[in-house]
Computed example of a mutant assay.
Amino acid sequence: MNGSTSILAGVLLGLMLGLGLLMILSRLPWLRARDLDRRIDPYLRRSHSASLFAAPTSSSRARVVIENLMGPVAVKVLGVLERLTGGADQLERRLRLAGRRTSVDSFRIEQVVFAAIGLLLGIAVAVAAITLRDAGPLLGLFIVALGALLGVLLRDYLLGVEITRRASRMAREFPTVADLLALAVAAGESPIAAMERVARTSSGALPDEFAATVADIRSGTSVSQALASLGTRTPLDCLSRFGEGVSIAIERGTPLADVLRAQAQDARENAKRDLMELAGQREIFMLVPVVFFVMPLVIVFAIFPGLAVLEITL
């Protein structure tokens, strides 16, 4: 056992030494590949003036802190995470669909934390497998790498679960919210005032998104653009159709109350259809206890008296 543990420790130390030397060699100037931007950068003229409306290009504070603490290791790890779970734009959209206001770098740091926890659990399982089952060092290294990978994938899976739950919650809230909007518009309020009233008097994920849409419109964004961004921030297709229908009704002068009632009725029909599909899936799952638990008991109760009679006659 002690020999296997020492072998695993030696393999881990050798792996860490090899990774450290590889990173050192990759940072050497004459061995590092230079891209086109770095080649032409010394020949560009820098302007001291900058536009007031230019988007900031600085990284977030969390990313700067991690990069200052860990150096090139953090850059490599964040690059591997981007290649493993998608780019920054895709992750930004998924975070907005989940209703999270954190930055992409903060989520990457959470993935690194989950990977570290999975790495520690993998080391514990690998040591237990080597000491108790006499497993090889290569299997221990595979378990350690698998633990880190599963930690990263687990954080990404939890984000997908958050998106699914938020979508189901919005789907339940949408028919009621659409009816409230229809009542407010039919009472004489404007669409923006109706959305503001619903956001102020209701609670939930969808009223919060309506509050953000009203804030965008108050800040100068056009109604069509604000409603289009509402569809991109939410994981429901019916909200995209809702934004398009409301913007078209406002532009063409269509009675908005009828449009909202039709949207609510369509949402209820979609919810009924989804409920029927879920009931069909649950019906299949209900066959599992019937086949594996109930039917064997029925067969035992049917056959046991006959076997008992045969034993008595014999």
Rank of each mutant, 00 (worst) to 15 (best):
Val11Gly: 01
Leu15Trp: 00
Met23Trp: 02
Leu31Met: 14
Ala33Pro: 06
Arg38Pro: 08
Arg39Asn: 13
Leu44Asn: 06
Leu44Ser: 06
Ala50Phe: 15
Ala62Trp: 12
Arg63Pro: 02
Met70Ser: 12
Met70Leu: 15
Ala74Met: 11
Arg83Gly: 12
Gly87Thr: 05
Gly87Ile: 02
Gln90Asp: 13
Arg93Phe: 03
Leu95Cys: 00
Leu97Ala: 03
Arg101Ile: 06
Ser103Glu: 06
Phe107Glu: 06
Val113Gln: 04
Ala116Val: 15
Leu139Tyr: 05
Gly140Val: 02
Gly140Asp: 01
Gly140Lys: 01
Leu141Met: 09
Ile143Gly: 05
Val152Ile: 08
Leu153Tyr: 14
Leu154Phe: 10
Tyr157Ser: 12
Gly160Leu: 05
Glu162Asn: 09
Thr164Phe: 09
Arg166Glu: 10
Val177Cys: 10
Ala178Gly: 00
Leu181Arg: 09
Leu181Pro: 04
Leu183Pro: 05
Leu183Phe: 08
Ala184Gln: 03
Ala187Thr: 03
Pro191Glu: 01
Ala194Cys: 01
Arg197Lys: 14
Pro207Leu: 11
Pro207Asp: 07
Asp208Glu: 14
Glu209Asn: 11
Phe210Leu: 15
Thr213Ile: 06
Ile217Pro: 08
Ser219Phe: 10
Leu230Asp: 06
Thr232Phe: 01
Leu236Ile: 06
Val246Arg: 02
Ile250Leu: 13
Arg252Gln: 10
Pro255Leu: 04
Leu256Phe: 05
Ala257Pro: 04
Asp258Thr: 09
Val259Gly: 00
Asp274Gly: 05
Met276Thr: 08
Ala279His: 02
Ile284Tyr: 12
Leu287Gln: 05
Leu287Cys: 07
Leu287Arg: 05
Ile299Met: 13
Ile303Asp: 00
Phe304Tyr: 11
Leu314Cys: 01
